[in-house]
Amino acid sequence: MSLPPRTLGSRSIFPYLFGGLFLFLVADSWRRAEVNPGIFFEAEGREHLWRFVTGMYPPELSWEFLELMVRPTLETIQISVMGTLIAVLIGFPLGLLATSTFSFQGLLHESEYRGTGVRHGLKVGLYGLARGLLSLFRCIPEFVWAFMFVRAVGLGPFPGVLAIGVAYGGMLGKVYSEIFESVNTRPLEAIQSTGAGRLQIFFYGWFPQVLPNITSYTMYRWECAVRTSAILGLVGAGGIGQQIEISIRMFNFHEVTTLLLILFALVAGADYVSAKVRSLL
């Protein structure tokens, strides 16, 4: 019996090509990034490490200092929450537009309209624009965004919020659109067959399918935002990060330890909250 024709290009050389390229990259990076585990076993290296570690102990726990750190801690939380919120506001609509099954093909479009080329072209253009914006937002590191926003709006938490909002908006939008593309269209067709309009199909068939996934991914991103907001502080975008930067500059490594502990508690707390929310879905 003859085999049916292969419709999916499984006879491709790409897997081999990429496999080879990957191996080459790993080998090359090992050499060029100067990876050298031996350094941990040399006397000098060990001494450096030891001095660094002991310099950070014990953590600074005086009331004065802790009291001073309450505000920056809260600020870090606020930056992460506001930043994630803005990221959702940017990512959701752009993610929708960047979804081909939402913006120009599939059951919301085929057989719905008289096919005018201009209209279709416009939709595809919008789709391309959304994808482009998302890539742009995402490929510039948060750190660089923060730096630019500090220049634009001055020091403080606000540039941090903006940086997280834009960079994370790009990441959220990208992942949202992948979640949207993976929606099962059969329930959508059934709803469409009752005579429902596009938005009704969206709210009854589409949204309930994607909600759990986008919520859980957003929660995960918020967790990352807590950590990121600390890094952003290093360029003057407020929060704990700014305190870490000050303490390092003053050689107060005991304080750095305390701040890292606070950061650890924050991330663990965010992890706990997001796990709780996800378990409710």
Binding site: R186, A190, P208, Q209
Partner: peptide, 10 residues
């Protein structure tokens, strides 16, 4: 429909 065309989460 033949296959389950209901929205599972609703």
């Amino acid at each position: 429909y033949q296959q389950h065309n209901l929205v599972p989460r609703l």
